[in-house]
Nucleic acid binder design. Structure first.
Length: 833
RNA sequence: GCCGCUGUGGUGAAAUUGGCAAACACGCGCGACUCAAAAUCGCGUGGCUUUACGGCCUUGUCGGUUCAAGUCCGACCAGCGGCACCA
């Protein structure tokens, strides 16, 4: 009997996370706790008063289910949202799935299920998991990128891009992933390998669709400083856009030395026109040499072979990163417009066809690459910029001097500072100042199946007549807006062909279509668009998911945009986060939205590792959140994830660490269910409470969740030690609510709360109560701590000195005369002997 | 090579403007409860030294500024991330 009694109480007292979490989650949905006031079209005025758009990068539903890394990011975002909601904002925290793309398609291929079928399975599983982590999502506004009602508008954006001249087709060397069997954008190649599958990327010459993001390079760069974003992401974008100021300068070419023909010219781009007098040779890229050959340049067989070899090598799959420069003299001479010197033109692999103009003037004395080449091929080196550290002219250089200085060997420009000479020499040689960017246009087409078909039609008849929707692209028409979406056909064999043609090309019924202009037999574009286009506008659709007339309503965007807080991984610094800004700028220019920067504030969360190692399937150390939620509860896992390290830094997940948080929550539960309150909290407890309010509030705002949790622990320690009144306990629960939303809500109800704690106002601290009347006065002698004594706040130096002298140990060290005393109010006193 | 970030106990980490280094936890040790164990609770826990009070040392390394440096400055070392013949 006694045993049963004890067991009964044991189970009653222990926190049953499964039961409580399920109950709270059900209640939240029923009461619509997290549904924002997104008004129906007619009554915009009646909507949210203090809108706060709290967005988290939506996940792609991977086969393995929700990764703990996803949960880490989502929890961090959710805590911020819950905090803002309790502060009185109408928080909108939507969720959806970025379900189109190679990742999902590859998984479908692997298990032999159609991606559309698999999508439904993953969707269900993902949403279930996303419910279980306890986030305050607005479930009514969810979206999936593979939903025709969504990609209808993705396609619509494409057609508008085409009409605006921002989407175009071009044949050029592009990145090709042999494993994914599709082309990739530059942003999707990381260190020469495919961002997704890590396969070495090769170059292929293909005709592809591009978005003209480079037209926005200047704006994308210019806006960066004003964005409240994590610095590392802003820096990455700045480097990626890579602005360089320089000059475009034309050189005459002499096919035969000493015989100007006035016909042949070549343009070069340089950021150092000040060094022009030092240009002792010119280098053209193999790509440009190839073009010359194509228009009839009669070159040696050796030269032709060199060009062909280098071009072949650039296409090859081996990633040999030799820094050894090769090259061949072309037999042609260029005339340096600065001093009319005839300089040899070389062809070398160290000059790239798609950078600058594909040709350079080489100044070996002031560019290390030119220097190396000149040394290797015995070309003269001429110094024209004298470093400030050097008094007389230098006779030999062991390396190029790339800094600024004063010009020498430059005729009438001698003595001029290199910075001024840039402009002066450019003018002298008839050059034109120019700005170039590293950024290149966004390669948007993909030769895969699982994506939105590019909504374009090509009519050969129109092409032959040189007519079309756009003068520069005869034969091409956007699918009329009324015909959207161009639905992705259900195909049995959706395997990538690897030939540069999308699997959709084999679906005759799909590709055969009538020309929208002349009605002749035409064909559809069969490539699909890059997944990153899907995610480049999803934040707009969230606020208007049910709109069947437009992608989104402008009045709503005015109310909810820009996104107030965006959280995600920094791996998207030059992918998603760049594309999304570009698309926003375009939409702004079309008058569809008012702000050209979509995210007011962006914070990158850190990376989670496990026991000191990167999580990976092969290591078998991937943390499955489902298991932990089952064992410890979502609240415990959430809180542990936030406690283990600073959110923006990322941290090390250790199983042992879960114990501390579980213990903490059990203690809170015991405290909250026992409900043994004192009539009035002691000063100590009251102060602990107010300090916790202050600290937790400040820390959440700054995303310092780890120290916010520790502040809660300190507060609980005080409550347990001294006992607390009911109000103190309620305040404590509110502070804990963003971190452990289920338990906080349950205990809140048991303490008599009528509505959900997540709709309660966030506490505000009383500065007077935070302050302590006493402080620890640090007594130093010659800078060394000799005593710590309790003192009244605000005491003057004389009183502090008296206290210090009264301390036996400190007194022991104060021998001789005091030369100087340093007194820092409410902190320390330091005697210098 | 260039740009950025990070180096603090056995572990994760904390530290406003330069003002007690190691908060809060984990782990460990000792103790209480228990026949016993788990759970729970209490105490201790950077190193060296001292019977004790205390003292000396300690934030990757070396140097500097300062009454005072984890924090500021200079040089270097290590690790992580990004870009990489960008003309």
């Amino acid at each position: 009997m006694i045993l049963w009694y004890l067991l009964y109480h044991y189970f009653m007292a222990r926190y049953d996370h499964k039961k409580v979490e399920a109950k709270r989650q059900k209640r939240w949905v029923k009461e619509g706790v997290y549904e924002p006031n997104l008004p129906r079209r007619a009554s915009l005025q009646a909507g949210a008063k203090k809108p706060f758009y709290n967005l988290m990068m939506f996940p792609y539903p991977s086969a393995e289910g929700l990764h703990v890394g996803n949960m880490y990011a989502f929890t961090g975002s959710d805590i911020y949202g819950r905090f803002k909601r309790m502060q009185g904002y109408d928080v909108f925290e939507p969720i959806g799935l970025d379900g189109f793309g190679i990742h999902s398609e590859n998984y479908a291929l692997k298990i032999g299920v159609h991606p559309a079928t698999q999508a439904k399975v993953s969707e269900k599983r993902f949403y279930k998991q996303l419910v279980s982590i306890g986030n305050g999502f607005a479930w009514n506004e969810r979206l999936e990128t593979y939903d025709p009602e969504y990609y209808r508008w993705t396609q619509w954006i494409f057609t508008r891009m085409f009409k605006a001249g921002l989407a175009y087709r071009k044949r050029q060397e592009v990145n090709w992933c042999p494993s994914c069997k599709t082309v990739l954008a530059d942003e999707q190649v990381e260190g020469g390998v495919c961002e997704r599958c890590k396969t070495q990327v090769i170059k292929k010459e293909l005709e592809q669709w591009f978005f003209g993001i480079t037209k926005y390079a200047e704006r994308l760069l210019r806006n960066l400083p004003s964005l409240d974003w994590s610095d590392n992401v802003k820096i990455a974008q700045r480097n990626w856009i890579g602005r360089s100021e320089g000059a475009l300068i034309a050189f005459d070419l002499n096919m035969i030395p000493g015989q100007p023909d006035g016909k042949h010219k070549v343009q070069i781009f340089t950021t150092r026109p000040d060094t022009m007098f030092g240009a002792t040779f010119m280098v053209v890229s193999p790509e440009l040499a190839q073009q010359w050959l194509a228009v009839g340049w009669q070159a040696d067989a050796k030269i032709k072979k060199y060009v062909a070899d280098v071009l072949a090598k650039r296409r090859a799959a081996d990633k040999e990163t030799s820094t050894k420069k090769t090259g061949i003299f072309s037999g042609i001479y260029a005339v340096n417009p600065a001093n009319k010197d005839e300089i040899p033109v070389w062809i070398s692999d160290y000059v790239l066809g798609d950078v600058g103009t594909g040709a350079i003037m080489a100044v070996p004395a002031h560019d290390q690459r030119d220097f190396d080449f000149a040394r290797a091929f015995n070309i003269s080196i001429k110094m024209v910029v004298q470093p400030p550290s050097v008094k007389e002219g230098l006779f030999s250089l062991s390396e190029a001097y790339e800094g600024e200085g004063v010009l020498v060997n430059s005729e009438k420009f001698n003595g001029m500072r290199s910075e001024e000479a840039k402009k002066a020499i450019t003018e002298q040689v008839g050059g034109k100042t120019d700005v170039r960017y590293r950024l290149r246009d966004w390669l948007i087409s993909r030769q895969r199946y699982w994506g939105p078909p590019i909504p374009m039609i090509y009519c050969e008849a129109c092409a032959a007549r040189k007519t079309g929707e756009r003068a520069d692209m005869p034969g091409w028409y956007a699918v009329p807006e009324g015909d959207l979406p161009v639905k992705l056909p259900l195909m049995k064999d959706f395997r990538p062909s690897g030939t540069g043609v999308s699997p959709l090309a084999s679906a005759q019924s799909f590709s055969q279509v009538k020309c929208p202009a002349c009605g002749a037999k035409a064909r559809r574009e069969t490539d699909v668009s890059d997944t990153f286009l899907d995610s480049a506008w999803y934040y707009l659709r969230y606020i208007d998911v049910a709109n069947t007339q437009k992608p989104f309503d402008k009045a709503r965007t005015e109310k909810w945009l820009p996104v107030d807080m965006y959280i995600g991984g920094s791996e998207h610094a030059v992918l998603h986060l760049l594309y999304v800004r570009f698309v926003a700028m375009v939409l702004k220019d079309w008058g569809l939205i008012d702000c050209e920067e979509p995210f007011k504030k962006f914070r990158a969360h850190g990376l989670l590792i496990k026991e000191g190692a990167k999580m990976s399937k092969s290591r078998g150390n991937v943390v499955n959140p489902d298991e932990y939620i089952k064992r410890f509860g979502a609240d415990a896992l959430r809180m542990y994830l936030m406690f283990l390290a600073p959110f923006e830094q990322g941290g090390d997940f250790r199983d042992q660490g879960m114990a501390g948080i579980t213990r903490f929550l059990e203690r809170v539960w015991r405290c909250g269910t026992a409900q043994k309150f004192v009539k009035m909290s002691s000063d100590d407890v009251r102060r602990a409470r107010e300090q916790a309010v202050k600290k937790v509030t400040e820390d959440i705002e700054a995303l310092r969740y780890n120290t916010a949790v520790s502040a809660l622990m300190i507060c609980l320690n005080a409550i347990e030690e001294h006992g607390a009144d009911k109000e103190t306990c309620k305040t404590f629960l509110k502070l804990m609510a963003p971190f452990a939303p289920h338990m906080a809500d349950e205990l809140w109800e048991r303490l008599g709360g009528k509505k959900s704690i997540h709709r309660e106002p966030w506490p505000v601290h009383d500065e007077a109560l935070v302050r302590e009347e006493t402080f620890d006065l640090v007594v130093q002698v010659n800078g060394k701590v000799r005593a710590v004594v309790k003192a009244q706040k605000g005491i003057a130096e004389a009183q502090a000195a008296a206290l210090a002298h009264a301390d036996a140990n400190a007194h022991k060290f104060i021998i001789g005369t005091i030369k100087k005393t340093i007194f820092v109010k409410d902190r320390l006193i330091n005697f210098i002997m």
